[in-house]
Computed example of a mutant assay.
Amino acid sequence: MQAYVYKSLRKPDTYVYLRKRDDFAVMPDPVRLPLGELAFVLEVALTPERRLARADAGVVRSNLATHGFHLQFPPTMLDPLVDG
């Protein structure tokens, strides 16, 4: 599964993974708007073997398949898709 990663220019260390490049419409406005402008960072293949530095690749794949996006927050913040 391919993922497209964007960083929030408003919220430090906050990233959005999208299933389709530039498909911000999959994110509800209450989630998207507080992030401000999003800048493309990289395209990554999320295989079962892929390890990510600050996220569980399985959770990211699951959120992409279910919601079309995944939010990665700074380590000090809870992830509402996992911890909520």
Rank of each mutant, 00 (worst) to 15 (best):
D23G: 02
Y17H: 04
F40T: 02
S8R: 02
V59S: 04
P12F: 09
L78K: 12
L33M: 08
G68L: 06
L42E: 15
F73I: 04
N63Y: 04
R21D: 13
V5A: 03
G68I: 02
P28V: 04
G36H: 07
R54A: 06
V26Q: 06
R54F: 13
G84L: 05
V31C: 04
V16K: 00
R32Q: 07
A55V: 05
G36C: 09
N63V: 00
R21G: 06
K20E: 14
A45L: 12
L38I: 09
R32G: 07
L78T: 12
L42Y: 07
A3N: 01
R51H: 10
P75D: 15
K20V: 10
F73A: 02
Y4H: 14
D13K: 13
A53V: 13
D79V: 07
R50S: 05
L18D: 00
R50V: 15
M77D: 09
Y15Q: 00
Y15F: 14
H67C: 06
F40M: 01
T66P: 00
D56I: 06
Q2H: 13
T66S: 12
L52Y: 01
F73W: 15
V41A: 01
Y6G: 00
F73G: 00
R50I: 08
L42C: 12
V44F: 05
H67T: 07
A45Y: 08
A45E: 15
Q2E: 11
K7W: 01
P12S: 10
D23Y: 03
T47Q: 11
V5Q: 04
G58H: 09
E49F: 12
R50Q: 15
V16Q: 00
A25E: 14
F24H: 08
R21E: 14
D83G: 02
T14C: 14
P80V: 11
Y17G: 02
V41C: 04
G68A: 08
E49R: 14
L33K: 11
V31K: 04
R32Y: 12
L33C: 05
F73Y: 15
L64G: 00
Q72V: 10
D79K: 04
K11T: 09
L38N: 00
A57S: 15
